[in-house]
Design a protein around this nucleic acid. Structure first.
Lengths: 216, 216
DNA sequence: CCGATCCCTGGGAAATCTTCCCGATCGGCC
DNA sequence: GGCCGATCGGGAAGATTTCCCAGGGATCGG
């Protein structure tokens, strides 16, 4: 096999520069494309067809998760390695759900990124040690997020509420009674121990139910 | 004068690597120290006494702003250039208030960082073009951030509310009537056009009134 | 000094929302 | 079948929100 072709997706040119130098220091690794936005990533992927894509989640416009879904929809065999600053297990889970094969945080030592690239290129899965530890702790303690307490419907309504939708809008969107939404709202606050709507928003953010900046 | 000595402060090793290579490509620029946390930055500054410090705002533990204040408290002549992903005029203002001499976003082309480093080293002030445009637009249109609409008291109450405090708690903390807080709350929502408390929290986050993760 | 204006503080009253309790249905599971 | 939890909503008392209003204080131009 010849060189491994790689596409970089990150909205910070200087940061891309750092990745590129680091990656191309490895023999047999070539960066063949660089994209700044989700749309550009999708477009470039189709023309460059890299063996592997290294993608940040925080992108202007549609977020990185959207980009991953689009690319995977176009090529189900695409290997995508998420490389992001978000040191959050919920983000990592979302990335894998969207179709990523790896998740490495930018706080990791450079060797970890290199190792993850090789692993993912070989068809494997890679996960940052810190995130892996988080997930393990979550599984062991059975309550990494208080969200486990919530029924699916409750979590869904919390997500909509925390993202700013009014109770009436949620009711309409879900074809439910306003009263039902209000009841859920009270129940969710009670279950999570939130005394305030604002507190509820922070909990939703902390659990990765809603994303603070644009999206991933 | 001999070489310009520079300290880098950023919690991502790989990102620091990128900066360092970029900076040291300039003749007469030498990176003499690298720090990952605010505490480390303060400690290293005292021993390395760099001519200029390039600092990210998102640091583990105490944030970058805190580091800037500490360093400037120790050396009022310290030249600090903030280099961060936060493309937000309020963040930039906070940085300058804390004692920074420059603010460049990571979305800027590399040359802008180089130019800013030289400007700040020479005793000047530097500001990213995008942030400068934001500030100008804010001044011109009188509402770049919707928060300009708010009276100081309103902003204060919004901050407390958005950070999760209940109306009653705010009233007690400020020695005001609960009714007053409730009235403010309604008025703030009306002024900012927020239909929902959650929406209000997002606005407060977007304007940098409250900080999502740790601090800047 | 005077009026205009804005900020800060709160009362009143009607409308709305929250909370708590309750019943109903439906699908799993023992 | 019986039990349990998830989902969906009504009812009523209590709390909150909203809108309107008002007085005091500060500032500013005339």
């Amino acid at each position: 096999m010849t060189a491994l072709s790689i596409m970089l997706v990150d909205d910070h040119p200087i940061v891309r520069e750092g990745y590129r130098r680091l990656i191309e220091r490895q023999p047999g690794h070539r960066v063949v494309a660089e994209a700044e936005t989700a749309a550009e990533a999708y477009r470039l992927f189709k023309s460059a067809t890299p063996d592997l894509t290294v993608m940040d989640l925080s992108l202007p416009g549609a977020g990185g998760l959207e980009a991953i879904r689009h690319i995977r929809q176009w090529d189900r065999t695409a290997r995508i390695l998420v490389f992001t600053m978000h040191q959050s297990a919920p983000f990592a889970l979302k990335a894998f759900e969207a179709g990523a094969s790896g998740y490495v945080t930018k706080t990791s030592p450079p060797e970890e990124l290199i190792r993850a690239i090789d692993t993912v290129a070989r068809g494997g899965r890679a996960l940052s040690a810190d995130i892996a530890a988080d997930l393990a702790a979550e599984r062991l303690t059975r309550r990494g997020g208080p969200l486990d307490e919530l029924a699916p419907r409750e979590a869904e309504i919390l997500r909509m509420f925390a993202s700013g939708q009014a109770a009436e809008e949620i009711a309409e969107a879900l074809c439910l009674s306003l009263k039902t939404i209000q009841n859920y709202h009270s129940q969710i606050k009670a279950k999570l121990g939130a005394r305030t709507d604002a507190h509820l928003v922070w909990l939703a953010i902390a659990e990765g139910l809603v994303l603070d900046r644009r999206e991933p």
